[in-house]
Each structure stands twice: as C-alpha cells, then as structure tokens.
Design a protein around this nucleic acid. Structure first.
Lengths: 343, 343
DNA sequence: CTGAAAGCGCTTACAG
DNA sequence: CTGAAAGCGCTTACAG
C-alpha cells in the first residue's frame, strides 16, 4: 500500500479510476462526482501525495511563484540587507501565500543580470524588485526586463517614462513633513544628509520637499548644508563628522534614511553636540531600530505592510491579466524625542 | 529571427543541430564539440533563451531550490518575523546562490503542516527550518518530515533522538558566559528571564549554563528570580514590571534573548531602576538593535553568518548524497555597557 | 561528437 | 461524469 514517490497514476490505480480523473479530482474540478472526488483525495492524503509542481508547471506554463529580488548597491560580501527592505519580506511572503503563491528570494548585485532569467526560465510568474540603487544602472535592468515581457513591480518612485509598475511613497511630501517639523520648532540651519543627486530619485524628491519647506519658512537652501553620503551608517558618520569639523554651524539634520540618521546622531554625540538640545535630527523609514536609539528618532514612516500587500496584489493581478495601476502612498511623520518637540 | 518564448527546439532549428545537442551544449557537456557548443550558446543568448526549469526539473527530479521555513510561535497576523532569524535570510540566500540553489521562503504557523509539501511536490530539494517553537508541536513536524524522507536541517539544539540534522550554538555555554560575566561583576541576585521550560530546549540549556555559573560563584538558584515570559518585548516588559512590583530585590537580569532584554530594560527604566548602576542586563543573540539600545546591550553572540553558510552547505551536502553531521558552534560574549563592566 | 527516441508526471481538449 | 490521448520542454541512455 505504501508507495515511495506516489504519482497520480498510483492514486488512479488504487482508486480504480483513470489518471485524468485523479488530476481533475485533486484540482477540485466540478466535473468529477463528489463521491469520487472525496475518495481520491482521501487516498492522496493517505499516501502523502502532492502534485509534482514541475509537471504541472510544464503543462500550465505557470509556477505560482513570485521572485523577490533585493538589489544592494552598497553591498559587499558581508553586507546585511537594507533593513527597510528586509522587513518587507515577512509581509510579502505572508500575503503571497494567502493568494496561493510561493516567494523565491534572491539578493542581486546591481552588476548581475540574472533578473531576466526568473520569468524566462519559468521559475517565477512575476517579479517584485526592492532596493535603493543607482538609477542609471537600475534603469537598464528595467528596460531589459520590459524587453523580454517580464511582469514586474518595483518599490520606489514612479518615473514618467519608466517601464513597469511601481509602488512607492510620496517622497516629496515626506521630505516636506520632516523639514516642516524642524522649521516649526524654530530650527533655521537645517542640513540634509544623503545622496540627493538624480541618481536616486527617491532621495532627490525628499530633497525637493526639504527645499519647499525651507522656502515656506522663509529660509534659503544653503549648499554648504547639503551633506552627501552613501546610504550607510559609516558614511553618514564620516560625512557629519567632517562637516562639523569645518566649523559649519547647524541646528538640525534631515537624514534621508534612518540608517543615515543613526550615523549622524553618533557623529554629533562624539563631537559633543547634544541631540535634540543643540541639533534636532529627523530620519526617514521608521526602521525597527528608530524607536531604540538614544534619543528615540523622529522619522517619516512609510507603511510597509500596506506596500507589501499592495505589491503582491499588483503582481498577482498582472499575472492574472487584470489591469493594474502604479500606486503612491502618503507617508506619515512619527514624532519621537530626537527633535525636541513636546510629546 | 525573434521568437516569443523560445524553446531548445527553436535554438536547434536556428543552429541546424538536433534538440538533444542543444540541451547538451547548454549544460556544457564535453560531448559537444566546442565550436558547436559556443555557437549554440551564442544563439541562446541572442534569443534570451533560458532552460525551462519545470521541464528540466521534471526530467531530473530536482528543483535546485531550498525551502526556508520560518516558524513563528508568537506570530499573530501582523507579527514581524523574529529579527534573529530574519537576519539569516540574507546570508542563506547568498550562500545558496553561490552553490546554484534558489531559496523559497515561507512563513509557517506551528499549526500548519504545509512543510511536508515542499519536497513532496518537487518544489524544493531540501528544507532549512528556523524558529523558536514549542518543542512538542515542533517535534511532531520533524517526525512527519522524517516519515516522508524529507531532507532538512533545523537551526537549534541537537536533541539526542531527534530526526534530521541540526545546526546550533552551545546554549549552555552561552548561558554560562552571560551569567559568569555578571557574577564576576559582583552581582548576586541574578534573575533569568524567558521561557526556560523543557518546551524550549535552547532556552532550557541557557538556564543550565546560568545555574552552573551561579553554582561556581557560590550562589544559589532562587526560583523567585526565574521570570517566565514568552519571547516578545511586551511580555518581558510585563513580567519584569510585575516582579519589581512584588518588591523582590535583584541586581541583574540575564534575558535569554535580546528581544526580552530590551523589554526588561524598558521595564526597569520605567520602575526607576538604573541600568547598569542598579541592575545589570545581559541578552542573547546580538541583534542589530542590541548596539543601539540605551545603554548598549551586553549580549551573547551566535555567529549567524557561519551558521547560515553552514546550514546551506549541510543541506546541499544532504541533497547531493554526502554524509553530513550536526554542528554545534561556540557562542561569544559581546561586552557593551548594560552591565557596568569597564570597557 | 551527434541524432532519434523514450519518458519524466501532469492538464485538458475531445469523445462518449 | 469519465477515459484515452496528446503534448508541455526538457535530459539522457542507446546507437552510430
């Protein structure tokens, strides 16, 4: 009675029906008489039988799998995944499972181009792309994906002529919220920390929001207060340390990510500047650690659960042939103690 | 010249060879003349052709995929993955990729039993299981996996009669290191926080190490200082708060995970106990946030990179028929400021 | 070194 | 409601 690696034919023999009927019964086809169906499913259960996904996928041209590709610009060998994207994995996986999809996770270097392989090899029906990357090389990848008709959605800004769908937050508004909070507290020498060049459209938009808030408050953007840093804590630390060493005065820092904000806070502390008394700090992302740093970090939150579930729905929609739109979410300011606002 | 979804037959027609030769050439078979092989690979590249994994997998009975199953005991709908296990995903994925394997990630409730499906459905060649779980229900799952000859490795303690391989750290030594550090600082009323019942063998072993260190220091284990808490920050907060409210005096806490340690530190602070002046705190895991809390947390580190890479090598070894052993790593005490040790 | 052929385990039109 | 049959796109013994 025990079969080592049972196939639908084994079930058929045991049930005294054809293999086709087994296939139908296991897919809950209404074409099969209920009594037959239940008997077949019972036998399948007893044998620990599961449909061979390779065979089914070969027939149906589907994998019921979504590939989740994490791009890592700053990543060396030992690099941890950007915690912001890492925290999406749970939501994406759970949400995909509830829609009947598996999730294949892969870390990609921006120099790789395995990404086109996932759908072409029928390993995945669609892709979700996560990562802050240099826009120019990123863009090439998107074009390559579009060229082979891959279904994909990218977390990030919606560029006008960019192929594919995107799901992102209104970064301009986010930058505005952060900066407006600082000007509202009377800060006037507000530095912005990060790579706000056009290579990083999401950070560039945060800069635009920053500039708008300054303008509204009657302040001028001062290029001496635009501090360039790659998106690592170490780079942020070094950049802020250098700026402070020049004698440049400042009373606030808007870091375009929490990772940068944490580095900035360390650099300020080591330079003897108190946060928030001497310098206010705002971040962006609301990483888990934002609540734990000292003082707890005021930051702009993107709703990652909503984003994760939305992206899964979008890619599944695309796979199933629905028409799907790009989405822009509204960010939210989370006030903690790093700016000196009363709670 | 452009083919929509090229197959090996299309390549064959274009190259003027048989489909079998294309298959061989693409797998770099030495049976194919080099010149022919290169010509075929060139054509494949031009057409953006990739081998259909479903078809190949059906033939070879392999998926070249590892399923990474994360079990979540405390997980409600909105629960984040335990950050300790989350941080392994990157290393596991990268390491699997370097060995030619994809990683399928799935969050599992301890009540589910999808886990047997992964290998039986030929979606994965083997499983890696991560998660702190209630040992009794966990054990049932392992037995079910073993019953259907699934290849798997579990991160956790090596129980004598447990099926499958495991990869874990020497939790007893870890508990000893933490507690010995505290006794060495002159602490004598050392609480232990967590679920150290036999349901959680890893935590129970940490308890054993704690008891051993106390014994060595001539101290007695006091059951009033064994604080039960599920592995969440909230539960730890509540448990420590209650204990302090009873008037129980204590001068140190060994939390069996960093998640618990963070909750304990909050509860102590809110009760007006200074860390480390009044109460020393040690954790376990060295989560990313351990360095960020205030004061930075002294903790026992498990080398997650080594563990991740080791587990991938082990499961791949198992898949490829090597003989593989369970491994126990040595943990390491990371001294920060939460105990008051001089740095 | 290359080709013809079988077959992996399914799904689904087609026929009854 | 059920079965016989074709075929998805590969890999690999077998024959040359």
């Amino acid at each position: 009675m025990k079969v080592e690696n049972p196939t639908s034919r084994d079930i058929a023999d045991l049930a005294g029906v054809s293999q086709a009927t087994v296939s139908r019964a296991l897919r809950n086809s209404p074409l099969v008489r209920q009594e037959t169906r239940e008997r077949i499913q019972q036998i399948a259960r007893e044998l620990n039988y599961f449909v061979n996904r390779n065979a089914a996928g070969l027939r149906t041209h589907q994998s019921n799998t979504i590939a989740l590709l994490l791009f890592d610009e700053t990543g060396g060998e030992d690099a941890q995944i950007n915690p912001f994207f890492l925290s999406m994995i749970g939501y994406i996986t759970r949400s995909a499972a509830s829609m009947g999809y598996d999730v294949l996770v892969s870390l990609q270097q921006l120099t790789d181009d395995w990404h086109v392989e996932y759908q072409a090899s029928h390993r995945a029906d669609g892709l979700i792309l996560l990562g802050y990357g240099d826009y120019v090389s990123y863009r090439e990848k998107l074009d390559a994906l579009a060229a082979v008709n891959t279904r994909f959605i990218i977390y990030g800004p919606i560029a006008a002529d960019q192929p594919g769908l995107s799901y992102g937050c209104d970064n301009q508004t986010g930058g505005y919220l952060a900066t407006h909070h600082l000007t509202g507290l009377g800060r006037s020498q507000i530095a912005i920390l990060g790579d706000t060049s056009s290579c990083h459209p999401e950070f560039a938009s945060r800069y635009d929001g920053y500039a708008r808030a300054l303008r509204e408050a009657g302040l001028e953007s001062d290029s001496a207060l635009a501090i360039h840093a790659d998106n690592t804590e170490e780079d942020a630390y070094a950049a802020v340390q250098s700026l402070v060493a020049t004698g440049q005065s400042l009373d606030a820092v808007f870091a375009v990510t929490d990772v940068l904000a944490v580095g900035a806070m360390r650099a300020l502390a080591d330079a003897g500047r108190r946060v928030p008394e001497d310098v206010s700090v705002v971040g962006f992302d609301d990483l888990p650690r934002a609540a734990f740093v000292n003082p707890p970090l005021t930051t702009v939150q993107q709703n990652i659960r909503e984003a994760s579930e939305g992206m899964v729905q979008a890619i599944v929609g695309l796979i199933e042939g629905d028409s799907v739109q790009s989405v822009q979410m509204q960010p939210k300011l989370i006030v903690r103690q790093s700016c000196g606002a009363t709670m």
